[in-house]
Amino acid sequence: MCRNVFVPKTNPKPGCQPKPLWLTFDCLSNIKRKQKAWSRYLATRRAVDFDFYKVARNRANENVRKAKKEYEKLVASKAKTEPKHFWTYVKSKVKSKSAVSNLMKPNGNLTTSDKEKATVLNDFFYQYQYTFLRLYVALVRPHVEYGNTIWYPHLKKDINAVEKVQMRATKLIPDIRHLSYEERLKVLKLPSLTHRRRRGDMIQAFKILKGIEDISYERFFTVISTNTRGHNWKLAKPRCNTSFRLRHFSQRIINDWNNLPVEVISSKTVEAFKISIDRHWNQSCIS
C-alpha cells in the first residue's frame, strides 16, 4: 500500500507517554530548568545549588498549576460548543481503561474479534429491545429520583428537564419511537416521573405518620381530629408566606394526603399502601 511505502514510521521509546493537554511551552521550559537544577545539585551537593533548585521547582509548580487551571476553564467554557475537547480531557484523566470482554455466541463459542462482539450485542438488543427499558428502570431512574423528598422540582423548566431523561429512554425503543410520549408510557405501562414523585411523597408521609420511619411526625405535621367525611389522619395546613415554604415536603403533600380514602390510609404495611394508592389513583383517572 502507498501508506506503507511513503509514510515514515516511528518506534516510540519504551515508557513514552503523550504530553498532557494542558502542557504549554512555558511549563515545559520551567520543568526542564527544574530538572537541570536538580541534576546540578546532585553533582555538587552545594547549598547554593539546592537553593537555586528550590526556586526553579517552585516556579515550575506554580506554572503547572496555572496552566492546568486555565486549560480547564477553557474546556469548561467551550463544553457546549466543542464537546469533543471536553470528553478528550475527561478521557485523559481516567487512569483505568476497560474494554468489552469476550461474549458468548449462540453456538456457545466466545467471540474473538470486535466485529463479532458488535454482532452479538446488536442481535441481543434487536431481539430483546425492551432489555434497555429494564436497565433504565433498574439503573438510571433511581439516580433521577434520588433525594426527591428534599429536592422537588416545581419550576416548569426543571420538571421538563428531569422528564426528558425518561422521554429519551422510551424513544430508544424502535417499535414505539413514532408515538407521543404519553402513548409510549401507556404501551410500556410506565408512569411519568412527575407522578412517581407525587407517589413517593405519599409513601414517605405514610412511613412517617405510621411510625415506620424513626421520626416523630409532630416535627412535620399536625394531625387534626374532624367529624367530616374522610380518614382520621387528616393534616392541618398552615399558612405559608413564601412559595419556598409552600413547596416544602411537609406542605405540598397535605392536599393529596387528606384526599386519600380510609381504605388506603388504613393499610397495614408499606407494600399494601403502595398497592392501595395505585388502585385508587388509577380508578380516579378512569372516572
Rank of each mutant, 00 (worst) to 15 (best):
S96Q: 09
K189G: 05
V187Q: 07
I275L: 11
R57I: 01
E218Q: 08
L246I: 01
L121S: 01
H248I: 00
P261V: 03
K66A: 09
R197P: 05
N148C: 11
P12I: 06
F249G: 04
I215Y: 03
Y126A: 14
N227D: 12
C16N: 09
K115Q: 11
A161R: 15
K97R: 09
K95S: 08
Q251P: 00
R65P: 00
V48E: 15
G200C: 03
N107W: 06
V262F: 08
I275K: 14
S96Y: 07
E62Q: 15
Y89A: 07
D49L: 05
M202K: 10
F124R: 03
P153S: 09
H178M: 09
D158G: 00
S113F: 04
I224D: 00
T149Q: 14
P191H: 14
M1H: 13
K69L: 12
S266P: 02
F52N: 14
S92A: 07
N282Q: 13
E82R: 11
C27F: 07
S39C: 03
Q204N: 12
S113K: 11
S180G: 13
Y130P: 02
G108C: 03
N160W: 12
K80T: 11
R45P: 03
V55F: 09
L260F: 01
K54L: 15
E70G: 02
F249W: 09
K78F: 08
F6Y: 15
L133M: 15
Y126T: 15
P20T: 09
P238A: 03
S225T: 12
P18L: 02
I212Y: 14
V64P: 04
P14R: 02
E116D: 07
Y152M: 07
R196K: 15
K105G: 02
N241Q: 10
L260I: 08
I254D: 03
E218V: 04
N4K: 13
R199Y: 15
V48P: 00
S225G: 00
W22N: 05
Y89L: 06
I215F: 06
V90D: 04
R199E: 12
T24R: 02
A47Q: 14
A43H: 13
N241R: 14
V5N: 08
I159P: 00
L110M: 14
I173F: 06
V100N: 01
K207C: 10
E82D: 15
Y217N: 04
N122G: 02
L190M: 15
V140Q: 02
E82S: 08
K9L: 05
I176C: 03
L133Y: 12
K156T: 12
M167S: 07
R252H: 04
Y41M: 02
K105R: 15
L190K: 00
T269F: 01
K274H: 01
N102M: 11
V223C: 03
H85W: 15
K54Y: 07
Q127V: 15
K210I: 02
R3K: 13
N258R: 02
I215G: 01
V120S: 00
F220P: 00
I212D: 05
R59F: 06
S276C: 06
P20M: 06
